[in-house]
Computed example of a mutant assay.
Amino acid sequence: MKQIFALVLAVVALSLVLSHWQTIVAVAAAGVLVWLAVLAVTGLRARRVNARRQERGRQSLLARRAQVQHEQYLADDERGTFGTYRPASL
């Protein structure tokens, strides 16, 4: 009895799949497109976060160097005025 029920269920499932295969393919394709869109958005977000971190790091280094040069200027050190680019000696 169980085998007959399983066979009938398999035939019904196969007939549903064969009669609605276009819908199944369309739903699967839509799912793949949504998955790709999520991957793209996640990748772009991670890229933007990484760029912000790099910019903050660059600004932090710039501020630190400016502070050192300011302290050198206050100590009447020539490097505080010209920084790492000294003028040519005449």
Score class of each variant (00 low, 15 high):
residue 79 R to W: 04
residue 40 A to N: 06
residue 81 T to P: 00
residue 62 L to Y: 13
residue 83 G to Q: 01
residue 59 Q to R: 15
residue 73 Y to T: 02
residue 39 L to N: 06
residue 41 V to Q: 09
residue 35 W to C: 03
residue 46 A to K: 05
residue 72 Q to D: 04
residue 57 G to K: 03
residue 34 V to K: 04
residue 62 L to R: 14
residue 47 R to K: 12
residue 64 R to C: 01
residue 40 A to P: 01
residue 58 R to A: 10
residue 42 T to L: 10
residue 61 L to Q: 11
residue 64 R to Y: 13
residue 69 Q to C: 03
residue 42 T to W: 11
residue 56 R to W: 11
residue 45 R to W: 10
residue 80 G to W: 06
residue 44 L to G: 06
residue 57 G to Q: 15
residue 60 S to D: 08
residue 36 L to Q: 12
residue 45 R to T: 12
residue 52 R to Y: 11
residue 38 V to E: 12
residue 58 R to V: 10
residue 52 R to W: 13
residue 49 V to F: 07
residue 49 V to A: 11
residue 77 D to L: 03
residue 68 V to M: 08
residue 58 R to H: 02
residue 35 W to Q: 02
residue 76 D to T: 00
residue 71 E to A: 03
residue 83 G to M: 01
residue 56 R to A: 15
residue 56 R to N: 13
residue 73 Y to C: 00
residue 51 A to D: 04
residue 37 A to C: 13
residue 60 S to I: 13
residue 63 A to E: 14
residue 64 R to F: 14
residue 59 Q to S: 08
residue 69 Q to P: 00
residue 80 G to E: 01
residue 35 W to L: 07
residue 37 A to M: 15
residue 80 G to N: 03
residue 35 W to G: 04
residue 58 R to L: 12
residue 40 A to H: 14
residue 68 V to I: 14
residue 53 R to Q: 13
residue 44 L to M: 09
